[in-house]
Simulated assay, not measured.
Amino acid sequence: MTTELWVLVGLLAVIVVVTVVIAVRLLVRMTRLRGQLRAVGAPRSGRLAFWLAVAYLVCPVDLLPDPVLLDDIGVLVLAVRSLGAGVRAAHEDGLPRDRDEEPRRVGA
């Protein structure tokens, strides 16, 4: 193989590795946010984004081919934003922040 082809293969390998690392980091962050939602006793509808994003991530049918995880990363980013908004809303509503506390409204 020529040098140009090796450079192209190396560049594509780096792009694939970077997108996989980003996807894994987003999946870990999304899992932590899901745990926070559960800890504050947020409604189950707020956790639906987690399961939809995981299903899209493992689904073999994608908008873009699987070595390019840009569509998967986009879905994960939307889920992270949705879960983060749910956690912020739960904290603003006065729900407890610790897992040991029972879910309750402040002042109720």
Rank of each mutant, 00 (worst) to 15 (best):
R25F: 02
R47H: 03
V7T: 13
R29C: 01
V16P: 03
T31G: 07
L48A: 12
R47I: 02
R44I: 01
L48R: 07
V40W: 08
V21Q: 10
V7D: 13
V9C: 12
V16A: 12
L52S: 02
V14P: 06
V17R: 14
P43R: 04
V54F: 08
V21G: 06
L11C: 04
L26H: 04
G10K: 06
L57S: 04
M30F: 11
V58R: 04
A39E: 02
G41E: 03
R44A: 11
R47K: 03
L12E: 10
R29M: 09
V54H: 04
M30V: 05
A55F: 15
Q36V: 06
G46M: 06
G10I: 13
I22R: 15
F50P: 00
V7L: 15
L48P: 00
L57D: 02
A49R: 02
P43Q: 03
L52Y: 05
Q36I: 09
R32S: 07
V24N: 00
A55L: 14
I22F: 14
A53G: 07
L57E: 02
Q36M: 14
V9N: 14
F50K: 05
R32Q: 08
G10V: 11
I15E: 00
A49V: 11
R44G: 10
V61W: 08
V7C: 13
V14H: 12
I22V: 15
Y56H: 11
A42M: 07
F50Y: 14
L37G: 10
P60G: 10
R32I: 01
V24D: 00
L26K: 10
V28F: 10
V40H: 13
Q36W: 11
A13V: 06
R38L: 13
P60A: 06
M30S: 09
L26M: 10
Q36L: 12
T31N: 10
V20E: 11
V21W: 07
V16M: 12
V14W: 14
W51R: 03
L11K: 04
L12F: 14
F50I: 00
V40G: 09
T19A: 15
F50R: 04
W51A: 01
L11E: 07
L8R: 14
P43W: 06
T31V: 04
V61T: 11
L37Y: 09
V24C: 01
V17P: 05
Y56K: 05
G35H: 08
R32E: 05
R25D: 06
L57R: 01
R44S: 08
P60E: 08
L8A: 14
T19D: 13
P60I: 05
A39V: 01
V16L: 11
G10Q: 09
V16W: 10
A13M: 12
V20P: 00
I15T: 09
R47S: 07
S45Y: 11
V14I: 15
V61R: 07
L12K: 13
R44F: 08
R25P: 02
V9A: 09
Y56N: 05
R29A: 10
S45F: 05
L37D: 04
L57F: 01
L8K: 15
A49C: 01
P43A: 04
L52K: 08
G10D: 11
I15K: 08
G10W: 04
L11S: 12
R32V: 01
R34E: 09
V16Y: 06
C59V: 06
V61P: 07
L33C: 00
R25M: 10
A13G: 10
Y56V: 05
